[in-house]
């Protein structure tokens, strides 16, 4: 007799056994669970190798990672802490100038000046944003938008750090492999570290502030201090990205405070899907190459880019990651009855 078959969702058996806490009973199920993560890690790690003969696209990969870091910072602040921060370019600029200064005056090599610039830059950004922490919603957003504008004007007016010309002759990486892998690995490490943080006790407190900050205060916790820590982590990522950029371009200048670094990460987070950090990275992986491909449209590039963005957001407002993971969880297989 022919065996009958019916369709079954793969994730059902895994999830039902323990109500959200996964219970695995076979290698197939384990594979099912870790495959997406493996795809991301493996894909990013393999990318520099695969792109070896396309130096142009290697640069694009770097830009993807830069924007992935900025998108994570935005997503973290917006969806975990509840602070909508439009100051991505502030972080990039501070990190960029920081690295340039460290390299030029202390002669530190990129691998040292980048982490240091991220550290000092994050401390600097946190300090400057400290007075704005009690602000909420659109007030915080608008103030963070002003910071990069302010920095540009100050640098211009006082002719600081080379004024409008910027700081030139910053040391490059020399070795393209180091240039690629240092950033790719750092991006992955930051991604998983930040995701880890969000389920640690400190992360729960941070998310608590977004849900109900009054209740956190009524629990004896100084929310300004916690928010300052969150800003420090986010600006660390942003400054790291900026510092990297300075060494890639071998230059730090006013365009590091450009609006792109504030706006594109928001688009990436919205397209990819906020609230998981992974979505933000996915968004950057999609949007940055897209904007490169669209260079073929010449002056109409931004128009086409915006159209695509609008369509994606209107049709898949939940974000691509949420959509994909829902579909993935609905995968079916045939089983014998």
């Amino acid at each position: 007799m022919q065996t009958e078959k019916r369709k079954e969702r793969i994730d059902r058996g895994i999830k039902i056994r323990s109500d959200g806490i996964y219970a695995l009973s076979s290698w197939r199920e384990i594979t099912y669970l870790i495959a997406p993560r493996f795809l991301l890690i493996g894909g990013l790690l393999a990318a520099p190798l695969l792109l070896h003969f396309f130096p142009y696209w290697q640069k694009v990969l770097l830009i993807i990672c830069i924007y992935a870091l900025l998108s994570m910072a935005f997503d973290f602040l917006a969806n975990y802490v509840g602070l909508v921060c439009l100051g991505g370019s502030f972080f990039v600029g501070v990190g960029g100038y920081g690295a340039a200064l460290l390299n030029k005056y202390l002669l530190l090599s990129p691998l040292i000046s980048i982490p240091l610039a991220a550290l000092f830059g994050a401390a600097f950004c946190t300090l400057l944003l400290l007075p704005c922490l009690p602000l909420r919603g659109v007030y915080f957003a608008i103030i963070t938008l002003m910071y990069p504008l302010m920095m540009t004007r100050i640098i211009e007016a006082f002719e600081l750090f080379g004024g409008t010309n910027g700081m030139m002759d910053i040391q490059g990486f020399g070795n393209p492999w180091i240039e690629q892998y240092f950033l790719v690995v750092a991006t992955l490490v930051f991604l998983f570290a930040l995701r880890r943080l969000s389920v640690e006790d400190l992360g729960l407190v941070i998310r608590g502030i977004k849900d109900n900050d009054q209740s956190v205060r009524a629990s004896g916790i100084n929310i300004t201090f916690i928010k300052a820590q969150a800003i420090f982590y986010a600006s660390f990522l942003g400054c790291f990205a900026g510092a990297y950029l300075a060494h890639v371009y071998m230059w730090a200048g006013l365009s590091m405070f450009a609006l792109d670094f504030s706006i594109i990460p928001i688009a990436a987070t919205v397209v990819g899907g906020g609230g998981s950090l992974l979505g933000a990275v996915l968004g950057a992986i999609l949007l940055v190459p897209l904007s490169e491909v669209l260079r073929a449209f010449g002056p109409l590039r931004i128009v086409v880019y915006s159209l695509i963005l609008t369509v994606v957001i209107v049709i898949k407002g939940e974000g691509l990651l949420n959509y994909l993971s829902r579909k993935y969880h609905q995968f079916e297989r045939w089983v014998e009855i």
Partner: peptide
């Protein structure tokens, strides 16, 4: 976890 994280607890 949030109150337990605070300094009083």
């Amino acid at each position: 976890i949030i109150p337990l994280y605070g300094p009083r607890a």
